[in-house]
Measured scan of single mutants.
Amino acid sequence: QVALSRTQVCGILREELFQGDAFHQSDTHIFIIMGASGDLAKKKIYPTIWWLFRDGLLPENTFIVGYARSRLTVADIRKQSEPFFKATPEEKLKLEDFFARNSYVAGQYDDAASYQRLNSHMNALHLGSQANRLFYLALPPTVYEAVTKNIHESCMSQIGWNRIIVEKPFGRDLQSSDRLSNHISSLFREDQIYRIDHYLGKEMVQNLMVLRFANRIFGPIWNRDNIACVILTFKEPFGTEGRGGYFDEFGIIRDVMQNHLLQMLCLVAMEKPASTNSDDVRDEKVKVLKCISEVQANNVVLGQYVGNPDGEGEATKGYLDDPTVPRGSTTATFAAVVLYVENERWDGVPFILRCGKALNERKAEVRLQFHDVAGDIFHQQCKRNELVIRVQPNEAVYTKMMTKKPGMFFNPEESELDLTYGNRYKNVKLPDAYERLILDVFCGSQMHFVRSDELREAWRIFTPLLHQIELEKPKPIPYIYGSRGPTEADELMKRVGFQYEGTYKWVNPHKL
């Protein structure tokens, strides 16, 4: 086992960053958080920038500027975001240094004079007029057009580079997404736009490419001749908990499936790229999406959770019991969808996408189930092999396979070949997804960000279904809070070829 401390991990990262040409360590950078008073800024962006600063992973002359409508001070920003920093008493001095680099400007999102004030403020910072500028839009999409237009007109660096990070949702359907994309691309070049999907920053999602293309053993079996089906799962054990009003506007397909799960599907299904260059990788992902037809209604199961009468606390409440959810809402909190990649490698292999709230566990994984062994000599005792990439929690890679049961006879039983990170790298604290992705933006690497043509294809696949749901308002199937979801989803999976045995229990190697 390799035991690495946080300091050692960050030392390795620093070495990698400083050796590259793309990370300008000594240049002045300004990180501007648009929507600095909001939840995302408070819980994710400010803490992430602090962790990067604490670990010495930001360029040395980096300033952080918050911008929002609320009249706040840096002290206010500190008060609301610091509880999420997880700072230790030993880091007190470092924390003071961090907040000394912070400033805040209040202004409207659609007022040109406010942006001119913001620009004057940035120019007044040390070497601010020639600094590289990175704008993070932690804002609702309704203000994107006004904000990007004003940034472009008043706040661009004339000497350094300018980059803009856009948070999902990128529209509600193909038409609104196209409108937003066309607007942003009329102001910024594609190499300046970073559409963030934080799932692409997760260690195991990034590991998929290495697993596939750096190991000879997987190449020959990664196709329709050997793989019976692919299941991509995202499960949350909690409901909307008072935030249903926002969720109800989008629903589970827009929230998770059309982005996170579809991105994971691309990494499983794509061909080997010409290189690890950002556009070479994204070219292959677009090719996969172009091979997927629009979702067919007979390959869809929609569910909505109801309270568990035997549960406790939140578990007793259904989705419609959330006071922020519109009365009688038919918005799905669970969806199972089957897609097919219609190309030579994957023809006929079902890709089953499942996601839901208020389920029995927290889990995100990719599961490849292989065909049955031909010419069975073990009297149907063999179960199908599976390769599982567990994204969260407890990152893991393992192969479910058959071995001989101890004893006199040739009785096979299920076991696993474990390729888990935790076994080799004991207690290594890896940077989280937002840390990686923000560092990628500083480096100018777009590999783990969504390109406009990729986004367009993703919406093309799901828009007809979303429009049909909005028009017909089908009643989702009720499922109990804390269950596996509607049984109809299991029946759909069985119908397209997935075999669920229920006889195997994964042993978490992190707890051995």
Rank of each mutant, 00 (worst) to 15 (best):
Y479R: 04
I469Q: 12
F449C: 01
I389E: 00
F410S: 15
P393L: 03
C355N: 05
T503E: 11
Y481L: 08
A297V: 12
K505V: 14
L353W: 00
H467R: 15
L465Q: 07
K475C: 12
P273N: 01
Y434D: 01
D283K: 04
A336I: 08
H448Y: 08
Y340E: 12
V349Q: 04
T333G: 02
D453V: 01
Q258V: 07
K404H: 00
N259Y: 02
D432P: 10
T403W: 07
P350Q: 02
K285A: 00
I480Q: 15
K475N: 13
A374G: 09
A374P: 13
L419F: 07
E294K: 12
L439Q: 06
P486K: 04
Y425R: 03
G311H: 09
N259P: 01
A274S: 14
C291K: 13
N385L: 03
V428K: 15
A458K: 02
C266R: 00
K290L: 05
R495G: 12
L289M: 10
L368W: 04
D310N: 14
N385W: 03
K429N: 13
E365R: 02
N308S: 13
K400D: 03
E361Y: 04
S415K: 00
N299D: 11
D322W: 04
E314D: 14
S329R: 04
D310R: 12
F351E: 02
R451L: 02
R367W: 00
D279H: 09
E435V: 08
C355H: 01
V295C: 13
A358C: 07
G307E: 09
L466S: 06
F410I: 14
A433G: 05
E413C: 10
K383T: 15
R436C: 05
G348C: 05
L261E: 01
V338G: 11
N259Q: 05
E470F: 08
D283E: 07
A269P: 04
D440A: 06
D279V: 11
I480M: 15
L417V: 01
D372C: 07
N423S: 14
E314T: 11
C291S: 15
K494A: 13
G444W: 01
K272G: 07
Y504Q: 06
K405V: 10
R451D: 03
A489S: 13
S415T: 14
P464H: 09
K290R: 13
F351T: 02
K317N: 14
P350C: 01
G407F: 02
S415N: 05
A336N: 14
N277A: 11
V286K: 13
K400I: 06
E312W: 11
G444D: 08
L289A: 08
N427H: 07
E284H: 08
Y305P: 00
Y398M: 00
K287M: 08
T399D: 00
P476G: 05
Q369F: 01
M401Q: 07
D310I: 09
T503C: 12
K404T: 05
V300S: 09
D322T: 05
V496M: 09
R390G: 05
D453E: 01
R282F: 01
A297D: 14
Q392N: 13
D255Q: 02
T463P: 04
V441Q: 00
N259C: 03
K494M: 15
Y305M: 03
V301I: 13
K272W: 05
N385C: 05
E312H: 14
N308R: 14
V349C: 05
P474M: 12
G497M: 05
T276I: 08
E314K: 09
C355G: 09
F442R: 05
K285V: 03
G502H: 11
K285P: 01
E414S: 10
D310H: 15
E386K: 01
W506S: 05
Q499S: 13
A458D: 01
F409C: 14
A269V: 06
G328R: 11
P309V: 13
M408R: 08
Q499C: 11
K383P: 13
V295K: 08
K290F: 03
N360F: 00
P406E: 01
H371S: 11
V337I: 15
G482W: 05
K429D: 09
Y504G: 06
G407Q: 08
P273S: 04
V295N: 08
P431E: 08
N394I: 06
G502D: 15
K505S: 15
R367V: 04
T487N: 10
G303W: 05
V268A: 09
T333I: 03
N427S: 09
H260W: 03
H371C: 10
I389Y: 06
L261C: 07
P486M: 04
G497W: 04
Q369Y: 01
H371T: 11
I480C: 10
K400W: 02
E457W: 09
R362E: 00
C443I: 11
D322N: 05
P464M: 08
P464W: 08
G328A: 11
C355Y: 01
F442S: 14
C266I: 05
R327K: 14
T316A: 13
I469S: 10
R456M: 07
I477C: 11
C382N: 13
V391I: 11
M402T: 12
A274N: 14
E413Y: 07
P474Y: 09
E457Y: 09
R327Y: 12
Q381A: 13
V300M: 14
K404F: 00
P393Y: 03
T403E: 05
A332N: 07
I253A: 06
R254V: 00
C443E: 10
A274C: 15
F449K: 02
V366S: 00
E413P: 02
Q468R: 13
R354D: 04
M264T: 07
S275F: 06
N360K: 06
P393T: 06
V441C: 14
V286P: 00
R495V: 10
C443W: 13
N277C: 10
Q304S: 07
V306K: 15
V300K: 09
G328Q: 14
E491W: 12
L419N: 06
E470T: 14
Q468H: 14
R495L: 10
E344Y: 05
R495P: 03
D490K: 07
G422C: 12
P464L: 08
M264Q: 06
K505F: 13
Q369L: 01
G313N: 12
V325H: 05
K272Y: 05
S278N: 14
L471R: 15
L267E: 01
Y305N: 01
L353F: 08
N308V: 08
K429H: 12
D255K: 03
G328V: 09
N299L: 10
H379W: 09
S452M: 04
R384H: 05
M401F: 11
N308F: 10
K426W: 09
K494E: 15
L466A: 06
T276V: 12
D418K: 05
P393E: 07
V349H: 01
F334Q: 09
L471F: 10
K426F: 08
E470A: 13
F498R: 07
L492F: 10
S445V: 09
K404Q: 02
V338E: 12
G422L: 09
I480R: 14
V337T: 14
V388M: 00
Y479K: 01
L465P: 05
V441I: 07
Y398R: 03
D372P: 12
Q304T: 08
A315V: 15
